[in-house]
Amino acid sequence: MSTSFHPAASPIENQVRLPFHVAWEIVVQGIRIRMGRSVVTLFGVVLGVAFLMSILSAGLIKGAVAGEIELRQRVAAMIGFLLADTGPLPGKTLALHRDSLPDAAEDRFVEALRKQGVSEIVSAAEIPALPGKKGLGALVVIGGSLPPDIWEKISPSLSHRLVAFTRTPSSPPAGASVVQLQREPSAEDLQKQAAARKSDRVRTIWIVTIAILVTMISISNALLMSVTERFREIGTMKCLGALSSFIRRIFFIESALIGFTGSVIGSAFGLIFSLAVYSATFGPGLVFSSISVFWLTVAYLVCTVGGILAAVIAAIYPADFASRMVPATALRTNI
């Protein structure tokens, strides 16, 4: 008996734990060789994640577009109220006093004033330093209060003694005609809005939950199929000395890899899909000027990470099942 063939009658030891790259190579090679199958599995993941992403991004886009439309309406209404009192603005100079931090609509409103052809907007604080400044039209107040001393200093320079407040004025200056450009929503309106927002949120949560479930099921179905197809291969590897942990690792790597690729592609598809649908409905200009890149990026990352997690979670059962299978059963066609 040659000793080189059987080096020594050694006692049973623990099986070698293979480094990660061995499993990685086996997985990558397997995916490459079974390209057709891998693409089908990948497609399942892409579809699931794209669905989830389209729901999430559609919600974001819809919200942003609705906000933008409301904003535009508010600005248009403010301009309308102002014009009703001042007449057309081209060539006129306006005085501006900021009493509080402007909100988005008020910011837009100032911008819109410029677009109306106002020749100059002078800050109220500067007017006393510009004695003899003539031709000032109305005074626009961003906010609801105007300190009386400012009014006293400015009023001599105004051609119209008109003060336009963007909010409900608290103490209207004496001897001026006062315009309120925006109405505070009534308590009843606020209540209605809150109720609408609440039912909207419930609906969104419901749809997103369904989307997540559909995504999970579609991913686990795709992965389960690719596992069951390979019971025999698993059995073979076990006969050749593969550890259960190695088998489990192979499935997790494969799932994570397919989950990652599928999620990246699927999220992009979902985003493109909802952008396209909303662009077709509201026009690309409105959609792209209103969307928030930050929140869409967050949604993209959430969907991608969620897809990968879903894939890994979906692999737990099949991987565990495969790794614990008795080789004889796995081979089925026995030895």
């Binding site: 030891e13 623990n14 099986q15 259960s244």
Partner: peptide, 12 residues
Amino acid sequence: LDFDELAWFRCR
């Protein structure tokens, strides 16, 4: 034999 030892056994 446990799973690990069986793997070693089948392997060698």
